[in-house]
Simulated assay, not measured.
Amino acid sequence: MPLRDHLRELRRRLTFIALGLTVGAVVGWFVYDPVFALLQRPILDLAEAREQTVALNFQGVATSFDMRIKVSLFLGVILSSPWWIYQLWAFITPGLTRRERTYAVAFLGAAVPLFLGGAALAWWVLPNAVALLTEFTPDEATNLIDAQLYLSFVMRVILAFGVAFLLPVVMVALNLAGLVRARTWAVGWRWAVLTAFVFAAIATPTPDVVTMLSVAFPVCILYFLALGVCVLHDRRVDRALVAQGLPRLDGTLADEDAATA
């Protein structure tokens, strides 16, 4: 596909994503109140447990309105995740065969649960992070937390975890599109594991190792599962090429393997 067509397709997909996010944000606007109550629940539980005044503070006149817009957009990303994940997949893998598209649809069906699972894991980690960041408040002091900063922190953590759990989808998509071989992912597994642990250490601002490992291990497991899918795909493609007398995707031939053996 020529570069101009790629750019045109990218613009088309981005337009679809924007429309989906807009619809999700409109829905988020109407469910703002219960969602906001849920987002501030860790603060209220912490205040009750410590018997201290810990509350969100809306400093500016328009802060509450601004936060409603931000939370609505955040909910738009969550609610429209099946739509924008599909659009990204469709852009990355436009030239798949019919059989590969079947596998792609099946694996894409796992992308949404992975994204939501990452968001759920972030929500599980969040109370510990809030407790750690506020535990140095003196007993007789009042902790008024800036609502903008708190909710922005919560939304960034949830989205970061969700996107991190989409890693296997991206790996398999690039492999099915013929852009990255499984061997490339396999060679870089050490860097992938290191990156997973660094991400877990940064995304979980708590001192306990258990929380960090509970984040890093799922990311590593998903990486190796995706690597296994890529290996199986490459083997199937190589067998089909050899059966036609063509070189494999890595440039080797079956005769060369026989001679080496």
Results as ranks from 00 to 15, higher is better:
A129R: 04
S80R: 02
P2D: 14
E9L: 06
A186E: 11
G178F: 05
P247V: 10
L241F: 05
A129F: 03
A111Q: 07
V210C: 04
A173K: 07
A254S: 13
A106V: 06
R101D: 08
L213H: 01
T97Q: 09
L176K: 03
G188S: 13
L39Y: 01
F36A: 07
A240N: 13
E140H: 11
V61F: 15
G20C: 08
R183M: 13
R13P: 03
R181V: 13
V31Y: 00
A258D: 15
S80I: 02
L253V: 05
Y32M: 09
E256V: 09
S64W: 11
P205D: 09
E140P: 07
W29A: 11
A104N: 03
R12Y: 09
D146S: 09
T211P: 02
W124K: 08
A62E: 13
V54A: 06
A110M: 15
A203Q: 03
A203L: 10
A192M: 05
D257C: 05
A182W: 03
E100T: 14
L232Q: 10
T97W: 05
V26G: 12
P94D: 10
L179I: 12
L116G: 03
A25R: 00
G24T: 02
A173T: 10
V112P: 04
F58S: 01
R236V: 12
L10C: 06
A119Y: 00
W83Y: 12
R8I: 07
P34H: 02
L241P: 04
L96E: 12
R99M: 11
V172N: 08
V242R: 12
F74S: 00
R248T: 14
L144C: 04
A110S: 15
W84I: 11
V209R: 00
S214P: 05
Y32L: 08
Y150A: 01
P34N: 08
P2S: 14
R235Q: 14
